[in-house]
Design a binder for these strands. Structure first.
Length: 378
RNA sequence: GUGGGUGUCGUCAAGCGGCCAAAGACCCUGGGUUGUGGCUCCAGUAUUCGAGAGUUCGAAUCUCUCCACCCACC
């Protein structure tokens, strides 16, 4: 009666001097080389990107994206997507999909919600209508969407938060995780990842980790970090709590992030990352480059004929000048979002490819040094 | 040439004797953004009101002269 998990992690190599890992995530929609950066496509679309462009990012392509339970539940509705053949078919994405549970939206849309043992009552940001989200409903929605990896419905505590609150929050998250696991039946089609909480209290993080690892899930996420706490504190907490997670399961640091966070996360043994930053900043006129950030709005680029990043070989950098990109942004042309999004995503996906290669060749610390020297502070 | 009108930030404009070291919008300049509500949020930018001279305790606001532009009519 050994059921096969839909998603499994295979550890290929561990860096000799750090906790950095090189692995493969096997999913029903293909293998994912890790560490990996997952572009975010909240509303069943990576904003301003065609799926083909997402699939062509970097040199190897992006093979997994993140989408969102909360948003798709509200619009167009999970039943509709199920009727349309599931999320992959609906959005014409042939790679793997991870769906966030809606737990984070409870946190980020905090003004209009009420948390109880049973679940969360909240108002729709679209029309103000009242909804009640529970672990069972989150799983039901994610089952209907048909994503490869589904996330547990958790409570993400804010920072700062007092110890008592964080403790209660992590315990609630574990109780909800048990309900998620019980509600999720088809484990051969989709895999449920648990989420660790615990704020910035190391002992609470370890406690949360032990609780969720007990449930023997195919993967574990670290939630509730990068929510405003100082970077150094986050690194410290992350470094400590990762050791509590099993080596034969994928580890996902949720909502991260900036290039420097990616390196720090990988160094501490993280396999998966996602972040809205590259696409959101792109829409707001900011680019990530090998020499740091570029604000394309700046007047100094008015007559700059050079590409965003002289070391980048993406479609955008091969064909367009900063002067043109600035013009597109200032004119509020749609192509501005498209090109800057493509560049930013390419930059992170390509950086991850280089990180993977450096781990394979056991020179991750050296590569990190080189990257930081050029990139500077984000 | 005659009559009428208008002149306040790059632009459009509020103000019409004190609360104006001049509102607002756009533009412009800079910054923010980390499990995406939001092509968005935050901040900055006129010691000055076409120029000059008056009236007044006090003027962008009243008077006079000049200048510029606009509209009619010769």
């Amino acid at each position: 009666m050994s059921e096969k998990h839909a998603v499994t992690y295979e550890l290929l190599k561990t860096d000799s001097r750090t906790k950095a890992r090189r692995g493969v995530l096997h999913t029903p929609h293909g293998d994912i080389q890790t560490p990996v950066f997952m572009p975010v496509g909240t509303q069943a679309t990576v904003k301003a990107m065609k799926p083909e462009a997402v699939a062509g990012l970097g040199h190897e392509g992006a093979h997994i994206i993140l989408s969102n339970t909360y948003h798709l539940y509200l619009r167009p509705g999970h039943q509709l997507i199920k009727d349309m053949g599931g999320l992959h078919k609906f959005m014409n994405w042939h790679g793997a999909i991870l769906t966030d549970s809606g737990g984070f939206q409870v946190f980020s849309l905090g003004k209009m919600r009420k948390i109880s043992e049973e679940g969360v009552k909240f108002s729709s940001y679209i029309d103000g209508s009242k909804h009640f989200f529970t672990p069972e409903l989150s799983i039901e929605v994610q089952n209907a969407l048909g994503s490869d990896i589904i996330m547990a419905f958790d409570e993400c505590a804010p920072w700062p938060a007092d110890r008592r609150y964080v403790q209660d929050s992590l315990n609630l998250t574990t109780r909800w995780l048990k309900r998620c696991k019980a509600a999720h039946k088809d484990i051969e089609r989709q895999s449920l990842f648990g989420i660790m909480q615990g704020g910035t209290y190391k002992d609470l993080r370890r406690e949360s980790a032990r609780q969720i690892v007990d449930l023997d899930l195919p993967g574990y996420a670290i939630g509730g970090l990068s929510v405003g706490e100082p970077a150094e504190l986050m690194y410290e907490v992350l470094d400590d709590c990762v050791d509590e997670l099993p080596k034969d399961k994928a580890r996902y640091l949720m909502g991260v992030g900036t290039p420097d966070y990616l390196f720090e996360g990988v160094e501490r043994g993280i396999d998966m990352f996602d972040c809205v930053l590259p696409t959101r900043e792109a829409r707001h006129g900011r680019a990530m480059t090998s020499h740091g950030k570029v604000n394309i709005k700046n007047a100094r680029y008015e007559r700059d004929e050079s590409p965003l990043d002289p070391e980048c070989d993406c479609y955008v950098c091969r064909n367009y000048s900063k002067a043109y990109l600035r013009h597109l942004f200032k004119s509020e042309e749609i192509l501005s979002s498209m090109l800057l999004s493509e560049h930013n995503l390419h930059f992170l996906v390509k950086t991850m490819e280089d990180i993977r290669k450096s781990i394979e060749e056991d020179r991750f610390p050296e590569y990190k040094r080189i990257f930081y020297d050029k990139f500077g502070q984000f």
